[in-house]
Simulated scan of single mutants.
Amino acid sequence: MSQVHNERIKLSATWLNGLSIAIFAVGGLAPLLTRFYDGATFDKESMAISVGCFLAAFGIHLIARDVLRRLKS
């Protein structure tokens, strides 16, 4: 039964990490790269959104790592 438990825990951690990557890519990285390649200036609002997405992605990644601590041996 612990093998099923471990697989569910790993699946949950993988889902959270995937969510973290999506938030990082779409909300944090894409707007910065778009502004960089367009040559537009960085406004405070866009920068705040990007930083917020970076922090949210990092926080969700840390939660995913914490979920993995529930694995049973």
Rank of each mutant, 00 (worst) to 15 (best):
S2V: 05
S2F: 09
S2A: 11
S2L: 10
Q3F: 15
Q3E: 14
Q3G: 05
Q3N: 04
V4H: 13
H5Y: 09
H5M: 09
H5A: 12
N6M: 04
E7R: 15
E7G: 02
R8I: 06
R8V: 14
R8Y: 11
I9K: 08
I9A: 04
I9C: 02
I9Y: 14
K10L: 15
K10S: 10
K10N: 03
L11G: 03
L11Q: 06
L11C: 12
S12K: 02
S12M: 09
S12W: 03
S12P: 07
S12D: 10
A13M: 03
A13P: 03
T14N: 04
T14Y: 13
T14P: 03
T14S: 06
L16E: 11
L16Y: 06
N17M: 14
G18I: 11
L19G: 10
L19D: 05
L19M: 07
S20W: 07
S20K: 03
S20I: 09
I21W: 06
I21G: 10
A22S: 05
A22G: 06
A25L: 11
V26L: 14
V26H: 06
V26E: 14
G27E: 02
G27V: 00
G28F: 00
L29W: 10
L29P: 05
L29C: 13
A30K: 04
P31S: 04
P31F: 01
P31V: 00
L32F: 03
L33H: 05
L33V: 14
T34L: 14
R35E: 13
R35L: 12
R35Q: 14
R35D: 10
R35A: 11
Y37P: 03
Y37S: 12
A40N: 02
T41G: 12
T41N: 09
K44I: 12
K44V: 06
K44L: 13
E45W: 06
E45L: 07
S46P: 02
S46R: 05
S46E: 07
S46G: 04
A48N: 01
A48P: 01
I49L: 03
I49E: 01
S50D: 00
S50H: 01
S50A: 14
S50N: 06
S50M: 07
V51F: 03
V51S: 12
V51Y: 11
G52M: 01
G52S: 09
C53Q: 01
C53D: 01
C53G: 01
F54K: 08
F54L: 09
F54P: 01
A56Q: 02
A56K: 02
A56L: 08
A56S: 08
A57W: 00
A57P: 00
A57Y: 04
A57K: 00
F58K: 03
F58P: 08
F58Y: 15
G59A: 11
G59S: 08
I60G: 01
H61S: 11
H61K: 12
H61L: 10
H61V: 02
L62N: 08
I63P: 03
A64Y: 02
R65M: 10
R65F: 05
R65D: 07
D66K: 15
D66T: 10
L68Q: 06
L68S: 07
L68F: 04
R69C: 14
R69H: 09
R69I: 08
R69G: 09
L71V: 05
L71W: 11
S73Q: 11
S73T: 06
